[in-house]
Design a protein around this nucleic acid. Structure first.
Lengths: 107, 107
DNA sequence: TCGTAATATTGCAATATTACGATAATAAGT
DNA sequence: ACTTATTATCGTAATATTGCAATATTACGA
């Protein structure tokens, strides 16, 4: 028990849930918003900006990166986080079309 | 530990996460999609349609309802589930504008 | 009111997520 | 090579989520 039964749902349904999950935690939403607001893409102060430990921020960044939402991660003294706008826009369209088609077919 | 620290984020950030969480499980996405596809709004066969127990479906429905996404719940032998299209559309717009504004300010 | 069908709730087990301290790894500069 | 700054990973604790069996509730019809 306790395991999400993904195999009983279609790929499309699972994809919607997978995308939504990235945004389902306020820390990750904050991180994305903060990165988007930076002039340059050097964002080594997420820890100070958001009130969570460095380890926790790093974990959330991994989740965001695993979803394909980060790019331009150059290793160095400070890492460079940028949102992968292609994937980000893709997520927006996928979610939005889910809402639109679901709404249109609703009773 | 283990508790999401909502108080460190703005209401707006928490709202985005709260909305996304509803769609962050494939069972709930399936339920919403299925309900939207019904001609009438009598949907007492979700259990047969999705491969989960009646108790589990009921729990997911509660989550969806608590978010304000269900309406027209008439008590009776069979309950009647309809998506609250106002809230649903509101969620779409909130998420979509988050994507758009976050994207537009990105480096 | 009694039986039946449909849905909700409870209790519990299994797994997932969140958070952080400690520590390791990485890269730049000296 | 050594130090320093930054980020990643590991280990662990606490909480949340998922799923289902059992049971309760609800509403309808006979």
């Amino acid at each position: 028990m306790g395991v999400t039964k993904r195999f009983i749902h279609s790929d499309y349904i699972n994809e919607i849930a997978r995308i939504a999950k990235v945004f389902a935690h306020p820390a990750r939403v904050s991180i994305l918003k903060y990165i988007s607001e930076q002039e340059s893409c050097i964002c080594n102060d997420l820890v100070d900006e958001i009130g969570l430990s460095q380890a926790t921020i790093s974990q959330h960044l991994t989740v965001i990166a695993d979803a394909g939402l980060l790019k331009g991660i150059y290793k160095g003294k400070a890492k460079c986080y940028c949102i992968n706008l292609e994937t980000f826009e893709n997520f927006r369209e996928t979610l939005n079309s889910f809402f639109i088609t679901t709404k249109s077919k609703c009773c």
